[in-house]
């Protein structure tokens, strides 16, 4: 853990983008991906999340997992702001293809078209995809 302290004090700030392309519950990637994002907040990096393809379903409001017996982790997306993770980018084409609009999402997001998303990706130091 001493390394983590060094990094915070050392001031190395990289651009990290977590790329989410999987729907929640069907597989564990969305949940465990979110766990990494939360941990990354402690490192004071420039963190963003991209939601592309089925990843946009992670943000859908009204998730109710009671009958599944799985934990509903969608409220966590609303808590991200408290961790200073405010850059949530949703690809416009992925939303449109799935018949979703920003009103369907539980959190405020920035909608980017594919070219804008490409530009954001290109400027990252680290892309971690789930």
């Amino acid at each position: 853990m001493s390394d983590e302290m060094d990094m915070q004090e050392g001031g190395v700030v990289k651009q990290f983008m977590f790329v989410n392309r999987k729907a929640p519950y069907g597989t564990i990637y969305a949940l465990e991906g979110l766990e990494v994002v939360l941990i990354s907040a402690a490192f004071e990096q420039d963190v963003s999340m991209a939601f592309i393809d089925d990843g946009v379903y992670e943000l859908k409001k009204g998730q109710d997992t009671k009958a599944l017996g799985q934990k509903n982790f969608s409220p966590t997306y609303r808590a991200l702001e408290g961790y200073d993770i405010e850059k949530l980018y949703v690809e416009k084409e992925s939303m449109a293809v799935r018949g979703l609009t920003v009103e369907d999402f539980a959190v405020d997001v920035t909608v980017l078209d594919h070219a804008e998303m490409a530009a954001k990706m290109a400027e990252q130091d680290v892309l971690i995809s789930f």
Binding site: M7, V36, I39, Q45, D125, I128
Partner: peptide
Amino acid sequence: GLGQLVEAGIQSDRLVT
């Protein structure tokens, strides 16, 4: 911990998934 993954991203020149 998961911090080791983030730290690897910070310390490495490249991270391949």
